[in-house]
Write a protein that binds this DNA or RNA. Structure first.
Lengths: 338, 338
DNA sequence: TCGATAAGTTAGAGCGCTCCAACTCTAGAC
DNA sequence: GTCTAGAGTTGGAGCGCTCTAACTTATCGA
């Protein structure tokens, strides 16, 4: 009863009938066309409100062959990074009159892929993927059908735009900061196949080499989650020679690592320094006070949306934008013990 | 060039032509109808893959008059509570073959309202609102057009389903826990107009009264954010008589409050105990170790989706489901000082 | 041999909207 | 008084699909 009993929603035709005008005129009024007389406009809007008329988006999009919506694929709703990037996307999209439909990939390539299929089937005008784990080939295929911008991970392929932070440079800053504090045994818990994980790992390794710490470099595999950070720290603690500092691939992992370190009776940063990446709201919590590498998350989201929308309106091209990271020192890093 | 240059997407008609069958047959194959011969099915799927055909959802939904999608309105992407509820919704929806489209209200009733309009215009089959701040009247109006279930906040109105935790009882548990630890001056930083804020506040006040602590009750207004928790704590610290315990309306506020308390040089829980609400992943971070009231967030999301889907298929009615909260003791609460 | 039944397929009428070309008026130019 | 331009309005085709009813062909019992 409840759902089946609902009355058929009024259509444009119904409004036209009541207002005593043609369907086309109602359509014009609904789209705020300037070439409608005041009188007609009034009659139509009156009829529309009387009926509680609401244009059917599917019909409209089908007929007009565009949707004015952007599909946004978020890799992990649990990571605040995505909320922050989404804020930026939202702001830019809204300014340009675009709708957003969000989908969560829940950290699973299978679900991510399915979400993209839904976007394509819905004929969104463009797609933004954030922290996407899908292989370049898949994204390429999607990019061939609709404009696509990736946030947080660059794709060398043409036809896909990207907005990233210079991850390698961020990693350099991280290692150098620790080096300056006197640390020499600096370990890295990486992000596995996650977005940005590879350049951060490379940046770490290169900087360690440059500083003459090649021998001390140690990469533990992770995956950008708190659990991975915890597991990584456990492995490090079991090792023969403890590192004096841990650089993790993101903030979430850093928090996991800190937990384990402290649970083992060690003090951060007195015994071990921990440095994250992203500068999410998590890191900023005073209670955590994580030293980390800042990414301009909101700006990245906004830049991605703006680039996409410009492309859609032939006012620009898809390019690769690289933003600058910066070091944010808080309380989880300190001088290495003498 | 980039977007305008894209080739027109193949349609069902194109597939039919190549396969040498009628449009209707292609449609049947696309919907996995059993009454299609093996041979025809093969020819159609071959033609479809050859063309890279993908059914146009808008056209399909328009023609079939249903969308198999549920609109999910999340109040605040920054609060992990929503990610966890969404996980539950996702799981249930997937099991029943429904799509999800998410929208973020960004804690603004105006944006929430607009998102609902989009849902209605998209003719979603049903809507789930999580932590929604909209007035009952608005939700009522929406509920009249499409089945609607609210998570985290009950609406006494008929025609709207809800899944909530017994917030008042949770507040009772919180206060009693603190009472048992010897606390008498227990303050509450509330959630303002947020979902669940009112029953939590009431539960707090009633329990304080029942325990003979009516005089000591003190409610500071907040809004479920970290900042509100921080501001509330600041106000409390400026007061003449410090509370020995703070019960906040949610975890995010608790974290904000802890920050301020510790920054003031006080120790949690030695000087002041802090107790949150929700038991989000934030509270579970070992580094924070927040004592809090648990809500079965995933289960709540799943229950909401299941109820909604059952209603859509005339297998059930919209009702008000109340789940039981439970106390989770961690490290931010301790005995009151003698 | 003749329906009757089932299995597979199809034409055609929509779904609710947009878009285009064409139409009707009115007002001003000459 | 005719012509033109512009403002306002309209009918009708079409977007890509589903759905119904009807059609064709093969199968089978009587």
């Amino acid at each position: 009863m409840s759902s089946t009993g609902r009355i058929h929603a009024p259509t444009l035709e119904d409004v036209a009938q009541i207002a005593g005008v043609s369907r086309a005129l109602v359509s014009l009024v609904m789209r705020d066309s300037p070439r409608v007389s005041i009188e007609s406009r009034r009659r139509v809007t009156d009829a529309a409100t009387q009926l509680g008329y609401r244009p059917n988006l599917m019909a409209r999009n089908l007929a007009s062959r565009k949707t004015m919506t952007i599909g946004v694929l978020l890799n992990d709703l649990h990571n605040p990074w995505f909320a922050e990037v989404t804020d930026g996307i939202h702001a830019s999209a809204e300014r340009h009159g675009y709708q957003l439909i969000l989908a969560s990939g829940r950290r699973s390539p299978r679900l991510e892929s399915r979400a993209l299929d839904t976007f394509l089937a819905s004929r969104v005008d463009g797609i933004i993927v954030a922290g996407c784990r899908l292989p370049a080939s898949r994204l390429d295929a999607v990019g061939a059908e609709v404009s696509l911008v990736s946030v947080g991970r660059a794709f060398s392929t043409l036809g896909i735009g990207s907005v990233t932070t210079d991850d390698a440079d961020g990693a350099r800053m991280a290692v150098e900061h620790l080096y300056d504090l006197g640390h020499r045994r600096i370990a890295h818990i990486d992000g596995g196949k996650g977005a940005g994980a590879s350049p951060r790992r490379t940046g770490y390794l290169r900087t360690m080499s440059r500083l003459g710490l090649k021998e001390n470099a140690q990469v533990i595999s992770g995956d950008f989650t708190e659990e991975a950070g915890a597991h990584g720290a456990e492995r490090l603690l079991r090792g023969a020679l403890l590192p004096t500092a841990i650089f993790t691939a993101n903030d979430l992992s850093a928090v996991g690592a800190i937990d384990v370190v402290e649970r083992a009776g060690l003090v951060v940063p007195d015994d071990i320094s921990v440095l994250g990446f992203d500068n999410t709201s998590l890191a900023a919590l005073n209670h955590i006070g994580l030293t980390t590498i800042d990414q301009p998350r909101r700006e990245m989201g906004a830049a991605a949306a703006t680039m996409l929308i410009n492309t859609l309106n032939d006012r620009g091209e898809l390019t690769d934008v690289v933003m600058s990271p910066s070091l944010v020192v808080r309380r989880t890093t300190g001088h290495a013990r003498a």
